[in-house]
Design a protein around this nucleic acid. Structure first.
Lengths: 339, 339
DNA sequence: GTGAAAGCGCTAACAC
DNA sequence: GTGTTAGCGCTTTCAC
């Protein structure tokens, strides 16, 4: 392997000069050129491990996500990757499986590898612990989910607003017994989406002078997975008076809910279905699916930007960026009569 | 940060001894115990960067894949990840976008970071160049796609067999004008699948005394993406005598083909559709889709095993493991009359 | 079995 | 501007 010393010897300069050429230090144009040419000829590439050891910081950032098989997170990952590439940072992807233990392991690795920083979509709002990183001064950006009490920059989705918009849409289309299948308690994203749902529904029920307890009866908690969505939907269908529409707070659970509906012979939009988050290959689902679109790519892109600022030493107070969702109305919420 | 020297000083031993304790060297039980306890108390974790520099090898393996948004590769990635975890190797995921330049960049990074090894699903059979890694003695395992001329271990899918089985199935169901939408020329996977298709079709046409030129007329090359599948299908539908079945050699192109069929008002199984590779959320597609199931997870798991052997210094001749596909018959190939 | 010492390749402080 | 020097934290001879 060609080292910086080899290049220095051949080019007739010191190792320090070679280093400066590669790191933007002051070197006369003529020598810089000579060094660059020799390096090229010798096939020299700086050893990143040595550099990391010396600088006490690697040129790698960690991206910790709970589910690599969820297209929402892969899209987010691409946003991070594209943004990182512009400053020559590479991205290490870590998959926690929504498991706090696995997550802790990866956070430890991030520390031990002295990564330049970490972007984390936390596995749990209460139990994810970012304090060790903060204590060691490692830049951290929370994305999509913010762990309670963590003093870090964050990029979030306006989940509450998205939930409100979705629910208002269902009401406007004439649905009345609207159910909600939401994520695990303790997940900030689904709680906010549920909160949006409740706000709008409560207002509506009050106006109509109806019983607010209905709200609770039509709410189901699941686990963000396909299976959870299916089970919850089956449970709702078994009620004496099943819902005439369902707001599902995540894409995978929507897939499960749709399967359950189909198996029960119930078709949207007779029973309305609205998914928070795009369902992959939604184009193939008939009838086409009304969704709350998440800015997944932008989420990653923005988070990477914030992280790079911090890594670059930019001093500013903690900041939280909130990105808006967009309601994409399609056929699955055409109204109870349309079926 | 606590270093090995800090621990050594406190425990009253030399740094070498501490190192031995953590790397399985010979140390008397009593001192080993003392060192371990002190390390624990001081919260010492070996600095992986320093270790890498010294050993000239990191405890990280690179996984280079062409499309992180294709569920086939995410599933493969999980196989790799699960296998790697057992030997404390972490996995760095790199996405090449089927772009040979990006791929080269990541291969360079793997070298510069002195990763312990690399698993690569090559972007191109002809232009992916693994020789630099081989030259520097870095263990490499090719997975799913083998670059031409590369002397590396490999884990492959029996694509030809899968293609044959799929085609025979379509014939047995009574389809006769069977088209094939395949991947780009130069991609080994799709060429093998196409070869399987051609073998069976040629035999069939000869038996029937029919014109073999039909084969070529009903073949379309696309790019493994949704859009490519759609375009190819539209093209086929525009023929004077459109096909009565289509064998699509990759999952994403199948999504595109299905969209095109639907837009044209053509429904499987009247026109048969068979996908090589599972379509995500296939459960939602109506009619349900007949697929050639790929052992994606096992592919990753097996590749990681081979790589770990090499990293561990196991000496054996190059080996290629071939995993079988499984035909999953569902409704979309019910036969031309069934529609 | 143990410690002293060298050095992996690089960058940054310092002296010129 | 440039070179000399020290040292990041670790592993691995080598001598005892």
């Amino acid at each position: 392997m060609t080292t910086i010393n080899d290049v220095a010897r051949v080019a007739g300069v010191s190792a320090a000069t070679v280093s400066r050429v590669f790191n933007g230090g002051r070197v006369t144009a003529e020598r810089a050129e000579r060094v660059r040419r020799t390096a090229e000829e010798m096939g020299f590439a700086p050893n990143r491990v040595a550099r990391s050891l010396r600088k006490q910081r690697a040129s790698v950032i960690g991206l910790i996500i709970p589910d690599i098989e969820n297209p929402f997170f892969t899209s987010l990952a691409r946003g991070v990757e594209d943004a990182a590439q512009k400053t020559n940072l590479s991205v290490v992807l870590c998959n926690t499986d929504e498991d706090v233990e696995k997550e802790r392991l990866y956070l430890d690795i991030a520390l031990a590898e002295q990564m330049a920083g970490v972007i984390v979509a936390a596995a749990s709002r209460n139990r994810t612990d970012l304090s060790a990183l903060a204590a060691r001064g490692m830049p951290v950006v929370a994305v999509d989910r913010r762990p309670r009490g963590a003093s870090v920059d964050a990029v979030m989705v306006d989940n509450q607003h998205g939930g409100e918009e979705a629910t208002a849409h269902l009401l406007s289309r004439g649905y009345r017994r609207i159910a909600c299948i939401t994520g695990p308690e303790g997940a900030s994203t689904s709680e906010e989406r549920l909160a949006g749902f409740r706000t709008v529904m409560t207002d509506h029920l009050r106006e109509q002078g109806e019983d607010e307890s209905l709200l609770r009866a039509y709410t189901r908690y699941a686990d963000f997975r396909v299976e959870g969505g299916r089970t919850a939907m089956l449970d709702l269908l078994a009620m004496p008076e099943p819902p005439d529409a369902v707001f599902v707070t995540n894409n995978l659970m929507t897939v499960g809910a749709l399967e359950a509906l189909r198996d029960a012979g119930v078709e949207p939009p007779g029973t309305g279905v609205l998914s928070f988050g795009d369902v992959p290959w939604a184009s193939l689902v008939r009838p086409s699916l009304t969704t709350v679109q998440l800015p997944s790519y932008d989420l990653g892109w923005t988070a990477a930007g914030l992280l790079q600022d911090r890594i670059g030493g930019v001093e500013r107070s903690l900041q939280t960026v909130v990105l808006r969702t967009a309601l994409q109305v399609r056929a699955s919420t055409g109204g109870p009569a349309a079926g």
